[in-house]
């Protein structure tokens, strides 16, 4: 079962940790809204290949390197459609 985890909480929010603990090997993690701020904090270890919503990165002035996939809304829809289960944290 592939679960898409959509996280919109900043790294300081208790649910941030709750989400990271729930991400399994076969799962995907998409950072949106304030969660994209995690990409500018050093020392936060995110599981697997990370995706982030491009417009939320831009809005907050967060730049990312090639290790992060910046995707758009259509990509987000495709991800949700492909997942067996979606959890919005």
């Amino acid at each position: 079962m592939m679960t898409l985890h959509i996280l919109n909480k900043s790294p300081e929010h208790p649910r941030f940790r709750l989400c990271l603990e729930a991400v399994g090997d076969a799962d995907q993690l998409l950072l949106i809204e304030n969660a994209v701020l995690a990409l500018s904090v050093e020392g936060i270890k995110l599981p697997g290949r990370i995706m982030a919503l491009a417009s939320d990165l831009d809005a907050r002035g967060v730049s990312v390197d090639g290790s992060v996939d910046a995707i758009h809304y259509d990509g987000m829809v495709a991800l949700a459609a492909a997942a067996d289960r979606v959890i919005s944290w």
Partner: peptide, 15 residues
């Protein structure tokens, strides 16, 4: 115990 195995028992998880 909160972990991935626990969550796997449910078809929908809502926070």
């Amino acid at each position: 115990h909160y972990d991935q195995d626990l969550l796997a028992n449910y078809l929908h998880v809502v926070c």
